[in-house]
Nucleic acid binder design. Structure first.
Lengths: 341, 341
DNA sequence: TTGAAAGCGCTACCAC
DNA sequence: GTGGTAGCGCTTTCAA
């Protein structure tokens, strides 16, 4: 069932039917009702491609996921982020288009997205420091919102970010307050902006107490379980071993926990662990030490927030860049305790 | 830059340029080269919406994610699956369109996808038992591949699935061989087909040894960490406590591990755990007991496989349904040991 | 081997 | 308040 058939059925012009369906004012209420009813009964649903071609708008948002040619893994938070964003989009009648872009042909990929004209705006994932995509997208004139930020980019752009600097500063301070002095940092790849900021927070907290960050206690890598395992194992094998770990991801933390266990140590007693973690709300009950977390629901909320920002930018071309900072939560857990040594 | 401009620039008709670009044979080689070069130089990239309108094909694949109105979480494996599928799509020039569909308005949602005509085919995620989407999609005549299967659907359809039945049978047998008799099952929601099959495997292995599955040792729920925690805590609080757990997801297993720890027990000695887990390959080194796993790379492979099946179905309309079974891996870990009691 | 022109389904301008 | 019609950018007959 297309517009032509529907309007023939109603004995009205396509123009009128189109207007009735799209809420234009110059249609009589009676006609509108009749059209709406027929559309429902006949299960009419407009061809979005044709609509897009006619209007120039596509009613679709692009989510561009950077995929490293080396590991090809998608950031596991993506599912939750898109679930949050999706609610906003579908309410507004937008589709979601995913593009996976390798790190080799980035510029061409973004130019293509622009030229193909299949999206009205873009959410940029996984920003790196000095990310070249930001000036590129500004040049292309496609509305975009960055999930995260890109340091050392001086022109303004729209972003929504978690306050990673502050989160890691607080987590480090917390461990220092518990008496820890040797704190291992198991961080993400530090050309990624979020990981860079996390390390900044970590070192800032140490420096504020007159301590210097020991390079032997810092690791940067793709956050897999084996990476967490190896990193913790190496640090625990040294002479002046850490009494606590600050871990940038739940997955890597799994490996860290395993390494602690294998070393014959007990979490929360011999070694403390603070990690971005998931669904730990239950630990509020009956335990008494904090764990730093980015919950799944906060990631969903970030998705919703970013989507709303982008839709606003699309609706109001020329609008000034929007920014939003989200604070991370601290909740209570058992993996963290006072330093023993 | 569009076709019109490009052909004007080349002083050729749109027809010829289009033919040259799309590999039609009736274009002279010289012309084709000239066109190709100009297209590259001028960064021409066809408007997919217009192409789609003209051809009837959309060059896009829909991935439909069921979202429960209660929890609204996306299955965490989705990211890896889409990453695998995406490689195949982009090589073939297809875009990915994501639709989030709540469990309330499913039929309408799928009909809409059909009518809007924005995809050439669909990957169905999260199939339930007797899933009504399968007959619906057959009726709609849209090519589709199910990631997983739907029990009690008798008409043939295309699917790609992990052998969950066999995986959980083997894992249970393995624990039984180690002397375990009280094995807790922390399973997913059992209206989901994969969870149903996993329980079947678990009970089949027990039955084959003359044991009966104890309802007190079986849990079914959405696989969050707190769910794993509570499930294990309850079972460990009983009188005849389990000596092993079979856990359907890594996230839930985190909670199970924590409950074991909180109960003052040690994993692999007092209580064994077998779980679908991630990146545990490193445990092959120096350890000696198996852990059942669905690795991230196997999920990627599933995505690739499903995408290839779907493209084949799209290219050859009327092709008979395709099916593919993937076997789960067993690798070596430390969480599992012989029964102590 | 190349080109002119119709048409995919819709919107939006201009008349009435 | 309603309708005719010219495109949106591309493919695909049909003719040359």
């Amino acid at each position: 069932m297309n517009l032509k058939q529907l309007s023939a059925h109603l004995k009205l012009s396509q123009t009128t039917v189109s207007r009735a369906l799209n809420g234009y004012p110059e249609v009589s209420e009676a006609t509108r009702q009749r059209v709406m009813k027929a559309a429902r009964d006949l299960q009419y649903s407009p061809n979005l491609r044709a609509k897009s071609l006619a209007t120039g708008r596509t009613q679709a948002i692009g989510h561009v996921l950077p995929i490293s040619k080396q590991h090809e893994m998608v950031n596991p938070i993506f599912g939750d982020f898109i679930s949050g964003a999706g609610q906003t989009y579908s309410r507004a009648g937008y589709e979601i288009v995913i593009s996976l872009v390798g790190d080799d042909d980035e510029e061409a990929a973004y130019r293509n997205i622009r030229m193909r004209g299949s999206v009205d705006g873009i959410i940029v994932h996984g920003p790196r420091m000095k990310d070249p995509r930001i000036p590129l997208l500004k040049e292309l004139g496609l509305p975009f919102v960055v999930h995260g930020r890109a340091s050392q980019i001086d022109t303004p752009y729209s972003w929504l970010d978690t306050n990673n600097l502050r989160a890691f500063t607080r987590a480090t301070e917390f461990l220092l307050d518990l008496g820890h002095r040797r704190i291992g940092l198991v961080n993400g790849l530090e050309f990624m902006d979020f990981a860079h900021r996390r390390r900044e927070g970590y070192t800032a907290a140490l420096t504020a107490r007159g301590l210097t960050a020991d390079p032997a206690l810092m690791r940067s890598g793709e956050m897999t379980e084996i990476y967490g395992f190896r990193s913790a194992q190496e640090m625990l094998a040294g002479s002046d071993t850490p009494t606590a770990f600050l871990v940038s991801s739940m997955i890597a933390a799994l490996g860290v926990r395993r390494a602690i266990h294998d070393a014959g140590l007990e979490m929360g007693r011999d070694v403390s662990v603070i990690t971005h973690d998931d669904d730990l709300g239950y630990l509020r009950n009956g335990h008494d030490v904090p764990i730093f977390t980015a919950t799944r629901s906060s990631v969903r909320a970030a998705g919703t927030g970013a989507a709303e920002m982008l839709l606003k930018l699309i609706r109001e071309p020329g609008h000034a860049p929007l920014t939003q900072m989200m604070e991370a939560e601290l909740i209570i857990g058992t993996s963290t305790g006072p330093a023993r040594r």
